[in-house]
Design a protein around this nucleic acid. Structure first.
Length: 268
DNA sequence: CGGGCCTCCTGGTAGC
DNA sequence: TGCTACCAGGAGGCCC
């Protein structure tokens, strides 16, 4: 669920609440949320330091440490989020890692299903290369021509390609379905069958949808009500009414994922 | 290289 | 009402 728009809003949330506050202590409630790292290592790296700035690449959020100790890297899996709270007794359920600041407030890394991971990274570019992540889907460097080139050299299922973080980083199941809906492409379409015009339409829709989702407050409660009425995302239910033609939304599996689309709008 | 399937995880819910 | 079975989904691993 936390895809690019959600993580972008988590980034802004962290900037707003937790920047330049000295970390007194880190409480790791569940080490399964840590990747290649003990709770001692994380505590040592963070205690008595501050987050100075943030970055995001695809679905990864990075917070820089002031001691030149590199970056804290967070991935949110499917149920991860951040929660800033002012008293220990307000700690949310499933808080896996809690950053305690000297001002008495706390930032929680909350992840019910434990599919997300926290780690440390010396260098973001190296991290991205090591993870084989493609360009961020909203990056200024990713223009329509570059995207067209990446897609043009791919084969296979379109949905799988768009979900592949090594092609473009940041898209997940929901926003890929939305892109396909807005561009009227069938979820089982193949990349090699796309025209150049269709590839350009995908690019435009991708950028527009991601920006709109960020503005609509992705990553917080009630997003579905704030998204434009023309969006499919709030109608992810078989038999729901297509917001464009009024037809029936259908459910299939594509690229191994639960997929919703309108068979009347999205012809093969 | 592509595709399909499994695993990690647990909360929520459909179905009996 | 209470139980079980299954699904949600990001990512990585495995096999064909």
């Amino acid at each position: 669920m936390p895809e690019l728009p959600d993580v972008e809003n988590y980034r802004r949330y962290l900037e707003k609440h937790a920047l330049r506050q000295k970390i007194a202590h880190v409480a790791v409630h569940d080490t399964r949320s840590l990747r290649h790292m003990s709770r001692q290592k994380l505590s040592r790296a963070l205690a008595h330091h501050t987050f100075t700035t943030t970055r995001r690449h695809g679905k990864h959020l990075f917070a820089r440490l002031d001691n030149d100790g590199g970056w804290l890297a967070m991935h949110f899996g499917m149920t991860g989020r951040l929660a800033y709270f002012d008293a220990a007794d307000k700690e949310p359920e499933n808080d896996r890692v809690r950053f305690d600041f000297e001002n008495g407030r706390h930032l929680g890394y909350v992840d019910a299903r434990l599919l997300g991971r926290i780690e440390l990274a010396d260098d973001i570019d190296a991290f991205i290369a090591h993870r084989d992540l493609g360009p961020d889907a909203l990056s200024d460097d990713l223009d329509s021509e570059t995207f067209d080139g990446l897609l043009a050299e791919r084969k296979g299922g379109l949905k799988a390609a768009l979900m592949d973080q090594s092609l473009v980083a940041g898209l997940g199941n929901l926003y890929v379905d939305e892109i396909l809906f807005q561009t009227k492409l069938h979820p089982l379409a193949h990349v090699q069958d796309l025209s150049a015009a269709e590839r350009r339409r995908i690019y435009k829709a991708m950028r527009e949808i991601l920006r709109t989702a960020i503005k609509s407050g992705a990553g917080s409660e009630g997003l579905y009500k704030r998204l434009p009425k023309s969006y499919l995302i709030p109608r992810r239910e078989a038999g729901a009414k297509c917001p464009r033609c009024g037809g029936k939304v259908e459910h299939i599996t594509a690229a191994g994922r639960s997929t919703y689309f309108c068979p009347d709008c999205q012809k093969r």
